[in-house]
Design a protein around this nucleic acid. Structure first.
Length: 157
DNA sequence: GCCAACGTTGGC
DNA sequence: GCCAACGTTGGC
């Protein structure tokens, strides 16, 4: 089965690609996803070895900043039943977890950010979900061609 | 800080 | 099952 490609959004003030790189083993559980579409992508389609663009939202320079890899497939997100946690959901429990997460490992931080504006203006990238008006999904599938194109743009000086 | 777009909730 | 109200996301 061919590897799949994704885009993961994160607010850098919450969790940035530098934070991921600084983690033990440069790996972190991607917790806090509370959207069914995003959850289902993780649960049904994400496999170890898949690659993802790391996207910074809600910040000065919005755009793709690097690449990470899925290193563990979907398993329950314990923050969902942790009372008082920012992402607590009373309908989730250890016996019946409603929300899940995957582990991601840092792969690369680009020498520059490929900005959202650049994605929107690029003929091969403007169809990406993240470039669509009003898009709010924090995890979206990306075509291999799009993934490769973003990496190429980011690495050229 | 504004506000458009979206997802969820809940009354009916 | 509809849909208005509400809360959140996220670019600007």
């Amino acid at each position: 089965m061919a590897r799949k490609y994704w885009l993961f959004k994160s607010e850098p003030e919450e969790f940035s690609i530098s934070d991921l790189k600084a983690r033990p083993k440069q790996t972190e559980p991607w917790d806090g996803v509370r959207n069914y579409q995003a959850r289902n992508f993780m649960r049904d389609e994400m496999k170890v070895g898949d690659l993802a663009l790391f996207y910074h939202s809600n910040c000065d320079t919005v755009g793709v900043v690097g690449v990470c890899e899925i290193t563990r497939e979907a398993y329950p997100d314990p923050t969902s039943w942790e009372k008082g946690h920012k992402h607590f959901d009373e309908k989730s429990s250890p016996e019946n977890p409603r929300w899940i997460m995957v582990d991601v490992k840092w792969k690369e931080t680009f020498p520059r950010t490929v900005s959202l504006q650049e994605l929107k203006e690029h003929p091969k990238l403007s169809e990406m979900r993240v470039a669509q008006r009003g898009n709010r999904l924090s995890i979206t599938p990306v075509d291999k061609a799009e993934f490769d194109q973003v990496c190429q743009l980011a690495r050229k000086s």
